[in-house]
Design a protein around this nucleic acid. Structure first.
Length: 582
DNA sequence: GCCGTTTTCGGCCCGACTGTTTTCAGTCG
């Protein structure tokens, strides 16, 4: 049996946290489980392997006890504590807390202990028959809230659906623009995970200062893209867009704008780590200021930079604020000089009408030159793509000539004849080596047979990486954000193989992929792998995807030097594996 | 359960809101 993945171990720790919470454990113990779950989920190496080696404690938030529990989990498939607690509390209790906002573990416990309510159905019945009111802490309002929440739950209106970043930013930017134009506003900024350019976004945080705050709150509720709102006040308003995205507008005094922006940009983990460090120095951070125990004075910051300055940190770009060591690096003044969109010089992954693209070779080439690219690899799908748009070996030979001929004619951009070849289940590419050798550039990608298991997939990827004519691996984990989990693959071994062979790994910039993700891209770059930021363009406008690829690269702490296609063509050309091995 | 410029015990981020209370616990972000 293969080892549990990091997500599986994290899920087990989260479950234990939920169970202990129902059991009435002190909150810090529950938080300890959740913190550890997060560290496990974000670990770029196999936590199962770490735990077996007795080294899982090197993860922040994992101590001796959890290290042992993880080992038990690996050896027996479960933990005795989870088994015991599951027998004590039916799974319906946790489902109830997920379905009804405002019903947490403490209150769910009361319902279970006093009335035996152990499922969503039992809860509905009890609320409908008014048997909940009268319990300590519950009234008629509670029953109303439960019934209303369950109606929404039945209708599939579950809270917590996440929107892809571009869609969230569309709404967020529209709201910010509209509020900035409003006469009542002074400053308006988008905060939250959208500002951190996360993969997907659960809600929008908009923060503002205004000389007529109540009026600005009302203005938000009247925007066309807003579906419904709460009560607008001087402090702000909660609303929801027609795309079911919650929007939180917060308004404060101008001299606290920096504190508020910092606080609502988050992440939660970043803020908690920063506050924790501050408390040890006698400082207390909130969205309203920084309280100094020694003087009893609160420092209000009009600008966000001042918050970090007062605490002795370098300014931390929003993309890095995930509680992944950025505070320690900022304290030492060692934050990376992050890559920007302007640093990209080449595009190494693009399709044309020869396979499933919508634009011709000429159109893609001209648009790339217009967009400032100095080199472009045409990488249509290969012989086994199999959606009616595969490129046979003979067709590829024609395509190579066409690309080279156009390259002769075209000034200002270097065109590469390439291919995105399928990595077959045994790890081999689906063209003959002789044909691959005629190409200037080859990306290998997995498009089929996702469910062959972690070990087989890892061997398949490593075999492809070791092929001398595969220069780079495209979208290495195959995930589709919010739609499809990555296929099981040992990324540690993939990264090791890439580093050893000089194979580049791609950050595919398509906004539903962003694959490699931030954690893997960081680990790969630290291991010495050269990263590519590619758009995988299927039409001209897709070149704009580079924005999302750069977002992931920045969240991965990448500098310009760690991304291969920031280099001028002659330098890049020499870094291709086919150039290295000759 | 974790962790240490408060080192092996005694703390652990901060505030708003809600519904229930009459001073606050629970929930949420």
């Amino acid at each position: 049996m293969p080892d549990l993945t990091n997500s599986q171990i994290a899920a087990a720790l989260d479950e234990l946290g939920d169970l202990y919470e129902l059991d009435g454990a002190i909150v810090h113990r529950v938080v300890a489980y959740r913190t550890a779950a997060k560290a496990v989920r974000e670990s770029s190496t196999s936590v199962a392997a770490l735990a077996r080696a007795g080294r899982a404690t090197q993860l922040a938030g994992v101590g001796k006890t959890l290290q042992e529990k993880i080992v038990t989990l690996l050896e027996t498939g479960d933990t005795p504590s989870a088994q015991k607690l599951r027998a004590k509390f039916p799974a319906g209790l946790i489902e109830m807390t997920r379905a009804v906002p405002g019903l947490g573990p403490k209150r769910a416990r009361i319902l279970y202990d006093e009335l035996g309510i152990d499922s969503i159905e039992a809860l509905r019945e009890a609320a409908a028959t008014q048997s909940i009111r009268g319990l300590r802490g519950f009234g008629a309002k509670a029953e109303e809230n439960i019934l209303a929440s369950l109606v929404a739950f039945d209708a599939g209106d579950v809270p917590g659906v996440r929107l892809l970043l571009p869609k969230a930013l569309n709404a967020g930017d529209a709201i910010v623009d509209a509020l900035r134009e409003h006469p009542a506003s002074d400053r308006v900024e988008l905060a939250g995970s959208a500002r951190r350019l996360a993969d997907s976004v659960k809600d929008l945080d908009v923060i503002a200062t205004a000389h007529e705050p109540a009026e600005l709150s009302r203005a938000l509720s009247e925007l066309e893209l807003i579906e419904s709102t709460g009560r607008p006040t001087e402090a702000g308003v909660r609303a929801r867009t027609h795309t079911a995205l919650p929007v939180d507008l917060k308004i404060v005094a101008p001299d606290q704008f920096g504190n508020l922006l910092q606080h609502f940009t988050g992440s939660k983990a970043h803020n908690m780590a920063m506050r924790d460090a501050a408390v040890r120095r006698g400082l207390h951070i909130s969205e309203y200021g920084i309280l100094d125990d020694a003087t009893g004075e609160t420092l209000r910051c009009p600008r966000e930079e001042q918050v970090y300055e007062r605490l002795g940190y370098q300014f931390i770009p929003a993309e890095l604020r995930e509680g992944r060591g950025e505070l320690e690096a900022a304290a030492r003044g060692e934050l990376p000089d992050l890559i920007t969109e302007a640093d990209l010089r080449g595009e190494l992954h693009a399709h044309t009408t020869a396979s499933d693209g919508r634009a011709t070779l000429e159109e893609m080439a001209f648009a790339a030159r217009e967009g400032g690219f100095e080199y472009l690899a045409i990488t249509d799908h290969s012989a086994t793509h199999g959606f009616g748009n595969e490129v046979s070996p003979d067709q590829l030979k024609v395509q190579i000539e066409k690309v080279h001929a156009l390259n002769e004619k075209l000034d200002g951009i270097e065109l590469l004849a390439g291919s995105e070849v399928n990595i077959l289940p045994d790890g081999s590419p689906d063209y003959e080596d002789e044909l691959l050798a005629q190409l200037d550039w080859v990306i290998g990608s997995v498009h089929t047979s996702f469910r062959i298991g972690e070990q087989a997939m890892t061997e398949r990827m490593v075999a492809a990486i070791e092929h001398p004519l595969i220069d780079a691996i495209g979208h290495p984990t195959g995930r589709k954000i919010e739609r499809r989990a990555p296929y099981p693959v040992d990324m540690e071994k993939v990264i090791e193989a890439a580093a050893r062979t000089g194979t580049m790994l791609e950050i595919n910039a398509s906004p539903d992929r962003r694959d490699l993700n931030d954690v893997h891209a960081r680990a790969a770059a630290e291991a010495g792998v050269l990263i590519l930021v590619d758009t995988d363009a299927h039409k001209i406008s897709d070149y704009g995807f580079r924005r999302w690829g750069i977002a992931t690269a920045r969240r991965a702490w990448l500098t310009r030097d760690q991304v291969a296609n920031t280099r001028p063509w002659p330098e890049f050309a020499a870094l291709r594996k086919r150039a290295l091995v000759r």
